[in-house]
Structure formats: C-alpha cells, structure tokens
Amino acid sequence: MKTGLRDVLTGWRFGAAGPTPPPPSAPGDVLAEAEGLRVRLGSREVLRGVDVVARAGEVLALVGPNGAGKSTLLGALAADLPADGGVVRVHGRPVDEWSAPELALRRAVLPQSTALSFPFTVEEVVRMGRAPWARQPGAYEAEDPGDTDDAAVAEAMAVTEVTGFAARPFSALSGGERARVALARVLAQRAPLLMLDEPTAALDLRHQELVLRVCRERARAGDAVVVVLHDLGLAAAYADRVAILRDGLIAADGPPAEVFEGGLLSEVYRQPVEVFPHPRTGDVLITPKRG
C-alpha cells in the first residue's frame, strides 16, 4: 500500500511522492543566499538590504553588536521570517517556494533558546531530528550502513557528549546540557545546511570549543554552516568567513584575518578594541582596550 490511508489523512503524499532529498553538493556550491534582504519587525526595519552567501564546505560566522540584526538574518535565511524586500534562496530556490518537509531535508536550525512542553528524554529529543527522513523511501535501505536513524542519533549524541545522559528527561538538565542536546538534535537531522543561533551562549569553555570544532568538521564534510557568534575570538579561530553586521547592514564580509581589524571593530562595537597576533601561534586575538 504505497499511498495508504495514513498518507491521505496526514497529507504527506497527497497525490505526490514524499519530499525529494537534495542532491549532494560540491564544495563552493551556494546553499543559502540573501540578496538585498530587507526585514521589518513591527515598525523597525531590522535588515536594510543585506547580501550574504553561505557556501558548501564553509563556516560563515555572523557577528555584530546587540540589535544589529544577526538573529533576524538567520531567521530570514531559515524561512522563519518573511522578507519585506529582496530575496532569500535556499539550494538555489526562493525560500517560500519550498514546502516545510522539503526544507527540513535541506537545512537544520538551532534556535537561540530551547523549550520543551513535555518531559521527553534526551534520546527522544535527539531522535526528533530524524523526523524529516521518516518517509524517505530509502530511509531503511541506505547504501551506507552507517546512515540509519539509530546511527545518526548515536553519532550526534556522541559528538556533543550527551550520550551519558541519554535516558534523562530533558527538563532535568542544566542550561548548557540542554543547549548541547538541542545541537545534537540539529546534527541528527543531517541536513547539508546548518544554521546555528548562538550555539555557544550557555556553554563552558570546553564545550564552546567542541561545538565550533563540530561546525568545522561538518563544513569539511561538505556542509554549509552559518553560525551567529558573540565571541569574536571563536569566530576568528573557526570561521572561514565572517560577516560583521551593523544596524541592519553588512559592515564587512571576508576571511577573519581580513575583516577583524582594530579600527573597524572599535567603530562597530563603539568600544575600543585591540587586534593582535598570539605571541606563540600567530592566531588572531581580539580584546577590548581597558583602563
């Protein structure tokens, strides 16, 4: 029974086949882009003509002061917020032309805060990330034996170091633990485009590094990663490209070594900032000038 009662009732396959998974992308392919994007929230125009591109194989960090429009930009790229001008494309197609199930196979989104109405366990929450794949015809006979739901869930939990409390209810976890479980759910979705809104905000030093290392690994494996960050040091260390937002416009966009420049940062953040190489490794270090 290919199109069963269930399919008709739930509308998964009303006359059409299930959502088609995206074809594999080559490094450098544009997986998400905004062109002249304008977004209005209430009476305020939060984004005033933003151009930004996320490519496969690349970590793009969005940085900028509070209220610059970082999360709004991410929300618009994720199809949460409608564009009031300009266009957002995901996998080459305007974002509002995709259906929700199609988009779910193409991009995963980590929201800034995670809430859960009912006390699901950690493992159940991570498994929710597999929902978009539930109705894929090849879901259970994939050529790669590691590419099954169980493997995806186990791997995502291992990478984010949450395996140890897989059976605990999500509501019993600390803020940082919840953030990592939410990230595990997003990773388990295995979408080629990852959008993370401040994934490091609630995390300790070790797990901040861990999360961004995961981002790098996903990018190396061919995914596009867009990540909103507050910590410029993390952005400098892990991002391939950084877009600095200021008042709803892109102030600079390029490799961290080029865009992280004392004068520009001091001006954007309205706080004197020093940029200098690490004495031993030569990495870019950024600190506010104090005293």
Partner: peptide, 24 residues
C-alpha cells in the same frame, strides 16, 4: 493517532517543529 509524531515535534515549539518539516 495519525498526528502523534507531529505532536511530539510540536513539543519543541512551533518554529522548531516547522524546521523539522511539520506544516504547523
């Protein structure tokens, strides 16, 4: 009963449910 899985996803909130392919 056919909406059970989607209700599970809705526990994450409306936007995350939509991100996971639910037509909320």
């Amino acid at each position: 009963p056919f909406y059970a899985r989607k209700l599970d996803l809705l526990a994450l909130g409306e936007r995350p449910a939509r991100h996971l392919g639910v037509d909320v």
